[in-house]
Design a protein around this nucleic acid. Structure first.
Length: 471
RNA sequence: GUGAGUGUAGCCCAGUGGACUAAGGCGUCAGGUUGUGGCCCUGAAGACCGAGGGUUCAAAUCCCUCCACUCACCCCA
């Protein structure tokens, strides 16, 4: 929606110019005939109403208003809880990084790097990018701060805004938030299972039902080249029937051929060679172990030989989690192993696995599934007053209640008691403290319980104690 | 980047063979006698009908161009 509104524009202008504006626009201004002292050399404030474009949040971004906050707090809390349970510690990295961190890690043949990054140059000439994903910055921090000196694996999590320039649609934004976790420093398949388990438990703890897990292994740098050449060889025989995107992928990024959604490419992709049939002994062992662990954990999974991921750094395990709900943006989370990334970024060879999930999409699904969200705590007390003298008393009392740890607001503007109670009612405040002239004289307050309209009068000094007692 | 749909007050929306001083509901605010909420009643504020241009005596309504939103492709979380 594009809005416009009216605003007042004021400028200091020489009188003749003001009179010219006045003639054109017919606005009321000082008329020199009625102000004989004014000469051509005087300047006056010229003021008129002009139409302005009203600002709105940039395309693909949105404000999270108070009404939405319960969802966000709920999800963030669940994330923090699950991380504590699994021994993951929070890390926050900057919203922007050097551009090359992402081009190196994500891969320059990917769409993200190719056309979705918010790149800019700062005044010092550095090429910077608003982070389009969370893993590379965490790896950078791991290397930069020598986190390999901590007991391995290092387990980290983040909740961070992510930026991608893309056409917005349901569940897709230019700025969105991801909760992600990374276990860096060990290639034990138990860690793969742990990360998947964590993601799974996380969704379940939120109350999401009917989620499913897709799993695949895309091999390592030992066995992947051989697989890719088998894949290319196979696809070369079908090149004629491929869509134009796939023809490009054939040379640029053959793994993504499998991911094509074009109907015409489906049969070809469906019977393409599977990475799992080309795994080296160690990758096969790893993948087998992982599946064993997942079975031990009772996590149902579907092997999907066509599951590859949009970022180039993945090795071995890749997985995606989706809600059963149909819809364009099906995937709510995904991840995988990235055993070569840290080395690629200049660290020592360090295996790692991670997972990330989009918070907006989680909330979308919580709403679709009508999951009940706990309410945020409301205000405890509203201070209503009547009259001048009572106002000062109310002001003091409000401050005292807060110092006693009781959340309280005082009404403002000298409204009628009726209006003040109405306000308490709409705000859902359980207790109203009334101070009028009578109370001021007696040194008391009237405490009203909104739920049952009961009231009691007590000395003003006893109020904090009284409110604490009923809470 | 491609395609389709939609744009009327904070929100939901009525009104599209041109006449509108733009209707209703929710919400907000205020009253229903002087210090008491939720229900009810009454009233008020709030919209140059997404923006700009055109056709017409007359446009929210027709035409054009933008912009935004939504959905799908694509991509991904």
């Amino acid at each position: 929606m594009s809005f416009s509104g009216l605003t007042r524009e004021s400028r200091l202008l020489p009188l003749p110019e003001i009179l010219r504006y006045a003639q054109n626009d017919g606005v009321g201004v000082l008329d020199s005939r009625f102000f004989p002292g004014l000469t051509r050399n005087h300047c006056c404030i010229f003021s008129r109403k002009v139409r302005v474009r009203l600002y709105q949040a940039a395309r693909g971004t949105s404000d999270i208003l108070p009404g939405e906050q319960p969802y966000w707090r709920y999800v963030e809390q669940a994330a923090a809880d699950i991380c504590r349970l699994y021994g993951y510690q929070r890390i926050d990295t900057p919203v922007f990084e050097e551009t090359s961190l992402f081009t190196r890690s994500i891969g320059d043949a990917t769409d993200i790097v190719d056309k979705e990054m918010y790149n800019f140059q700062d005044k010092g000439g550095s090429l910077l990018t608003l982070k389009p994903e969370g893993t590379a910055p965490v790896c950078r921090a791991y290397i930069q701060h020598g986190l390999h000196n901590l007991p391995q694996p290092v387990k980290l999590y983040y909740i961070s805004p992510i930026f991608r320039y893309d056409r917005p649609q349901a569940g897709r934004y230019r700025q969105h938030f991801q909760f992600g976790c990374e276990a860096i420093g060990d290639d034990d398949p138990a860690l793969d299972a742990e990360v998947i388990d964590m993601a799974w438990r996380f969704y379940r703890s939120l109350g999401l039902k009917n989620i499913s897990l897709n799993l695949n292994s895309i091999g390592c740098k030992e066995c992947r080249p051989e697989y890719l050449s088998a894949l290319k060889k196979y696809y070369a025989g079908h090149a004629a029937s491929l869509c134009s995107d796939c023809k490009a992928r054939l040379s640029k990024n053959p793994l993504r051929l499998l991911d094509c959604k074009q109907p015409s490419c489906q049969p070809v992709a469906g019977s393409a060679p599977r990475s799992t049939d080309h795994l080296c002994a160690r990758c096969l062992e790893h993948f087998t172990q992982l599946q064993k662990y997942l079975e031990m954990l009772g996590i149902p999974f579907a092997l999907n030989p066509r599951l590859v991921r949009g970022l180039d750094y993945y090795t071995r395990t890749v997985f995606e989690i989706q809600p059963e709900e149909e819809g364009g943006q099906s995937s709510i989370g995904g991840g995988g192993r990235y055993d070569d990334l840290i080395e690629e970024l200049g660290g020592k060879p360090t295996p790692a696995i991670g997972f990330a999930t989009g918070i907006e999409r989680i909330i979308l699904n919580l709403k679709r599934q009508n999951v009940a969200i706990p309410e945020l705590p409301s205000l405890q007390a509203l201070i209503a007053y009547l009259g001048e003298r009572a106002r000062d008393e109310a002001f003091k009392l409000t401050a005292n209640l807060r110092r006693a740890g009781i959340s309280a607001v005082m009404t403002t503007g000298g409204k009628s008691l009726k209006a003040q109670l109405r306000q308490a009612n709409t705000l859902g405040v359980p207790y109203v403290v009334i101070i009028g002239e009578d109370e001021v004289k007696a040194g008391t307050v009237t405490l009203r319980y909104m739920a049952d309209a009961r009231q009691e009068t007590l000395p003003i000094a006893d109020l904090p104690e009284r409110l604490r007692a009923i809470e």
